[in-house]
Amino acid sequence: MPFSSLAKNRERSYLDGQLLIAMPGMADGNFVRSVVYICAHSQAGAMGFIINRPQSLTFADVLLHLEMIDRADAIMLPEHARDFPIQSGGPVEVGRGFVLHTDDYLSDSSIPVSDDISLTATLDIVRAISDGRGPRRATMLLGYAGWGPGQLEHEIANNGWLNCPATEDIIFDRALEGKYERALALMGVTPAMLSADAGHA
C-alpha cells in the first residue's frame, strides 16, 4: 500500500495499531527479527514501520538535509533535538521521513493510527520537535514497509508473523537491542518457543 493511500483508507481494520513480530522462518532479509507497527490495513494492502532497526543519521543530519538549520546551528541544538531518535522504518521510500507520535501533537496533516498514536509526514512536526513544541513521545522513521492486496494476510497464514496489540512503551522504546524479545514477551512468548515451520493440523 503506498503511503498516499493511507489517509484515504481510514476505516480501521483488525491489524491497525497492531505489532507484527517476525517468525524465525522469515525469508525476507529486510524483516528478519523485525518488529513492525502496522499503521493501515485494508483490502488495498497494508503499511507500517519497522520499529527496531537503527539508523546512522541523527536529527541534526535531517535538519541540515532539509536546510532548516545551517552547520553552525547544528551544535547549538537543544538536547531533546540532538537525542531525537531516527530509525530505519522499512525498505520502501527510504529517503522519506515519517514521525510516529503520541496524539498530544496534531496538525492538519496528522493521521490517527489508533486512539492515542498518530502519524505525521510533513515539515511542521520536524520544526515543532526542533523548537521543543513536539509531541510527548515520538520517533522519526526513514522509509516504511508496504504490502499489496492480500499479501500480509498470506504471510501471516503461512507462519511469517505473529501479531498482538502494540503498547506505547514498545513503540517508543529507544533501546532497540532486545526489542524483538520484549515484543514477544507481550504475548508470553520467548524466541526458544517459536518454530520456523507452519503448524497445520
Rank of each mutant, 00 (worst) to 15 (best):
34 S>Q: 05
58 T>Q: 12
43 Q>H: 14
175 A>K: 14
146 G>P: 06
36 V>S: 03
70 D>R: 09
171 I>D: 05
89 G>I: 10
78 P>V: 04
34 S>T: 09
184 L>W: 07
179 K>Y: 08
160 G>Q: 03
160 G>W: 01
153 E>K: 01
42 S>K: 02
26 M>K: 02
168 E>W: 01
180 Y>A: 03
92 V>L: 09
53 R>D: 09
105 Y>P: 00
22 A>W: 00
9 N>Y: 14
130 S>A: 15
39 C>F: 05
76 M>C: 12
42 S>T: 10
31 F>H: 05
140 M>C: 13
90 G>A: 07
57 L>I: 07
81 A>R: 04
69 I>P: 09
75 I>V: 15
168 E>R: 12
127 R>T: 14
76 M>Y: 11
175 A>P: 00
53 R>N: 12
60 A>H: 06
177 E>M: 10
156 I>C: 03
50 I>F: 01
13 S>A: 14
124 D>T: 08
150 G>F: 08
78 P>M: 09
74 A>M: 07
97 G>D: 10
25 G>I: 03
182 R>P: 04
117 I>Q: 07
53 R>K: 14
113 V>F: 05
58 T>E: 06
73 D>L: 10
103 D>L: 11
55 Q>T: 01
74 A>W: 07
154 H>Q: 13
25 G>W: 02
16 D>M: 07
106 L>G: 00
144 Y>K: 02
144 Y>P: 03
29 G>L: 12
9 N>P: 00
56 S>F: 04
91 P>H: 06
138 A>Q: 05
137 R>Y: 12
40 A>S: 15
65 H>S: 15
122 T>Q: 13
105 Y>I: 00
94 V>Y: 03
62 V>A: 06
67 E>N: 15
77 L>H: 11
162 L>F: 11
88 S>H: 12
103 D>V: 00
106 L>S: 14
129 I>Y: 06
104 D>N: 14
53 R>I: 00
132 G>I: 09
8 K>V: 07
56 S>N: 12
195 S>Q: 04
79 E>L: 12
68 M>E: 12
38 I>W: 02
44 A>T: 07
50 I>E: 01
156 I>M: 13
132 G>V: 08
164 C>L: 15
131 D>Q: 15
14 Y>W: 11
54 P>R: 11
